[in-house]
Design a protein around this nucleic acid. Sequence first.
DNA 1: ACATTTGTTGGTCTACATTTC
DNA 2: CGAAATGTAGACCAACAAATG
Lengths: 479, 479
Amino acid sequence: MYYNFNDEDNNSMSDKTFLYGNPSWQPHFEKGIGPIYKAIVSALENDIKYGILKAGDQLPPQRELADFLGVNFTTITRAYKICEQKGLISAIVGKGTFVSVDANIESTTDDTEPYLIDLGRIHSLNNNRKYLSEAIVQVTQRMSVINYFAYDEPKRHISYQEVGSDWIKRFYFTVNPDDVFITSGTQNALAVILLSLFQPGDKIGTTRLTYTGFKSIASMTGIQLVAVDTDKDGLIPDMVERACQIDGIKGLYIMPECQNPTTCTLPAERRKAIAEIVRKYGLILIEDDTMSFLGNTDLPPVSSFAPENSLYINGTSKALSVGLRIAFLYAPSKFHEYIKQGIYNIDLTTSHFNAEIAATLLENGSADAIIKEKQMEAEYRNQIVDDILSGYQVYGNKRDYFRWLILPEQWTGAEFELCARSAGIQVFSAERFMVGNGPIPSAVRISTSAIEDVRELKAGLTILRQLLAASPKLPEFVI
Amino acid sequence: MYYNFNDEDNNSMSDKTFLYGNPSWQPHFEKGIGPIYKAIVSALENDIKYGILKAGDQLPPQRELADFLGVNFTTITRAYKICEQKGLISAIVGKGTFVSVDANIESTTDDTEPYLIDLGRIHSLNNNRKYLSEAIVQVTQRMSVINYFAYDEPKRHISYQEVGSDWIKRFYFTVNPDDVFITSGTQNALAVILLSLFQPGDKIGTTRLTYTGFKSIASMTGIQLVAVDTDKDGLIPDMVERACQIDGIKGLYIMPECQNPTTCTLPAERRKAIAEIVRKYGLILIEDDTMSFLGNTDLPPVSSFAPENSLYINGTSKALSVGLRIAFLYAPSKFHEYIKQGIYNIDLTTSHFNAEIAATLLENGSADAIIKEKQMEAEYRNQIVDDILSGYQVYGNKRDYFRWLILPEQWTGAEFELCARSAGIQVFSAERFMVGNGPIPSAVRISTSAIEDVRELKAGLTILRQLLAASPKLPEFVI
DNA sequence: ACATTTGTTGGTCTACATTTC
DNA sequence: CGAAATGTAGACCAACAAATG
């Protein structure tokens, strides 16, 4: 383009030429065709793709690479910045720039090969379908069933919004029915929120290990996630405040109960402290409380302490039935217009028939029975995990749908996932849940909720136990 | 920050000080607090919001404003650029920068006050619910109904994908069932496509007047729309090519049949020509063929001439029933992974129960009967419009769900919409459908498909006819 | 405590492309 | 046609800010 890359002539740089050695990484591209920063971006993308750069590798400092290429260092800044936005690398002032740990890792957890024992995905436990089936019969027998399909808004004796506020009230958060929206599930609610309340480039804080579905939707909408540090109780309030001050996060995503994947549950004081920070910095809190129905605690959600700044999601898929795809979303009035618009723009509306079934279940008390059974089944299954993996560090509340296993020294999560897979078992490693950079815990998530038959669970766990005692033996593979 | 704004001292500018007069618009902000370009952005936002800057107003040239503020002109470039991305203004090299026509106009068309005669929204005609009701009864009577809710993927004799490929085949496009996805309606399919195949900042070409739902989802995902010129037959192929060369569009959004809102239908040669360009430039074609069931033509869609580059959407909401929320999406194999991911990230999956009802309707022939009836009803209603508005320029095929009315000299679309509203009728003006800048046609869209009772249509049209002959008489209002 | 290393940000400069007159 | 007007894009520079030792 307009610049000649003539290293000798570049006097302003010549005194620094000796300051830097050869950069640890060098982008290969043809000079003179197209902009430099773009060339660097594609070189970086390629080298990560082909394994020349590996997760955690440190890139040369901007000034060093700039000197080597004979350009101003902010040109490198620009290139690095783009790569960072693509999630390939992450930079820390004073420290350096590093290849992201998940740069080359599939971050979804929705797919599993059918022949594997599925200790990977989190499902609703399908143990008893009696109530569901009754509700369906009840709904379909009503003369008005056609209305759920023919009309946009069928009339019913109490509104879905009231059903939703009643549902949310179960979890110690009292909201006005007018503030309740109905979405097609939790994931859908997250998509609506990110699309309607945030813009590409905005930053949202979240635990360093977070729900993969949230990572995906954030990456699709161009929203940057900022890792906030945690300890055994979950998010550390001071670290949230830090993220506000330093990173300028606009929102905060939390799962207060049974955080996915670490199973942390926020204690009461932290909930209040976080709400305090949310209010102080005017954050938009996105609280995903899908797991609260398990009843491990009776604490009010963070949203209840900062309702004006909060979006609170509580879905029925996990609690009642996968097929329902109904989640309730609380939003304060200042967000109503945006959320309405978002819901409309993504999918017009949720199926009224499904909403009616969910409403029926909730109104006639079947929901309570279903939840009770699921809680007991979860408890039973978790006990099996704790028994078979006794002696290992297994985290999780009594009734969670999954557990978090800290691996022995010799393993990394990714290695263990791979070996388990070869042994016929699907688990998901810490790597998949990582946000940004930082130390990756050696751990895997073990789901107890996807398999149909408890014998499968036992068989799978027994194999995992053997694996845990062994050493990583990776199959031969390139890259 | 780091710069002092001392106009006198700025020698490099002093010779130019006399070249420019006072800028036609001046941003008001406090110097020294925060970056200049951001201050300009908020000043601009505010002035548009409060009506100080009106749609179509020309902003001062970058150099002029820069001189006035005593900064480098590229700082203004930066501010303008951000505003352009926000959709507030649009700039043309050599010409200037202008406030967008839709900067302050609600671009949604989903809301209508209940007391108005709704000639605004486009609905499915709900004339006959017999078939739908039969299908629901049939589906619910099957013993396996619970499976639609309890399982993720109920077994059926032929797959929904095959149902989808059969449906698409009706519209002269033969596709492999493996390439068919099921989404929760057309709007949902568009959201999935934009989220999974495009990134914030990407550009997509579309007709200068386009579907508002597409505008909204593009704006939410940070995707820029580029207006492509049209004539009475719709998109002009040469203009599409121009958009490729000049704007570097990555995708192209089209409605080949009954383009919303202008009712244009692309003739055969244009379809081939556009497909040619799509292939030549490797564009991603997004073809929204929701209206083809009306059967105004029997032309194959553009996608059929460039299947490797095309995403073809054909929904059932308009054709069968609003409540179904099922659309079929064809995607070539190279996009499968992305689309799958996108569907999963937005909403997990579509309601199987609804899919089953749609499938039943399609398989047992009811769909044909429903469509036939809708076609006839549409024809009947359009005839009424053409009769009552005879003498005026009304565009539309025999069987469309809406018509496009060119207004007489004295009216602009926005004025007419406002006056019609005061007279109790909702119509949507050309302004709502505009992409970017350019001349705004004086026209409104008149929907024939939202009202229940034809008498309402007649009453509404009669009032509109009187209005057309009158002069704009705007109610007193500020801004 | 303070200098060093490293990344970030706001503003500027230069070449250039498109449109208008 | 060519000069003027106007917007665009890539690179550069200087001040700043966080982390490290």
